[in-house]
Design a protein around this nucleic acid. Structure first.
Lengths: 126, 126
DNA sequence: CTATTTAGTTTCGGTTACGAAACATTTAGT
DNA sequence: ACTAAATGTTTCGTAACCGAAACTAAATAG
């Protein structure tokens, strides 16, 4: 029962955050793209296509495409591994750091609201 | 400084949750689709296309398409409003409830998993 | 030196999504 | 009744994305 309430509270923080990010006109990233971006920024390097494909249990082309998209958005960068020139290392960028920092702030704002402020700037109905 | 750490902790919970959902082979929903689904389930009815378009600041066709997709996935349902037959009410389904309940469990697991320590000895807020 | 394995990308056919504009249907105004 | 407004969907042309398989380039084995 308490767990149920906790689940609902957690989901509601999630809702407020995602709604705020959509309203802010942030790029409409898919779960795959977001998981890739967060992994590159928050887990220790090196990050390769193969490693991410295994971590996320998706195909390599799916990773390549997500990297393509995130590169277009300027949130990530490719760099050939000089120790093994077959490998591509995925690296952070300033723009990606800014985006994720702001995203973190959205989450914290959504947590702080807890029933009043909701980071959407709208009345509490939504 | 403390805020920075808090942001990073929040982002890491987010990362663990999204990575887990991708690994679980959950549907690869976009931020828009997820925000729509969460809003229908966690905010008071009625939910209409127009209302959601305004809430999320996206076009009505974008909402129609997201509803199409979520309907195909069985996570949401359309119902004509009998008081104003122009309107379509968006309603919950069992499948959607199950999906979101499991998603909430993923978030809670990501919070408890590791790295939540803040050296205060106090339990995490959620 | 050739064969095999490995890493990542590209191709293929088909699906999903986008905004703008046009659309049908229903309600409200006069 | 006849017009005007509102709601949601469809169409249009375009871009993103999917998994499977073919592919290039680099490293390793025999």
């Amino acid at each position: 029962m308490i767990v149920e309430i906790s689940d609902l509270q957690a989901l509601d923080v999630w809702r407020r955050t995602v709604v705020a990010s959509v309203r802010c006109d942030a790029p409409d990233l898919s779960a795959r793209q977001m998981s890739l971006l967060l992994t590159v920024y928050l887990t220790p390097a090196p990050h390769t296509v193969r490693g991410l494909a295994e971590l996320l249990k998706v195909t390599k082309p799916a990773i390549t495409r997500a990297v393509d998209r995130l590169t277009e958005l300027g949130m990530i960068r490719r760099k050939v591994d000089e120790n093994d020139r077959r490998s591509v290392l995925l690296q952070r960028t300033v723009k990606g750091s800014v985006f994720l920092r702001e995203y973190g702030e959205l989450i914290v704002a959504a947590m702080g609201g807890d029933g009043e402020g909701d980071a959407t700037g709208l009345p509490p109905k939504y």
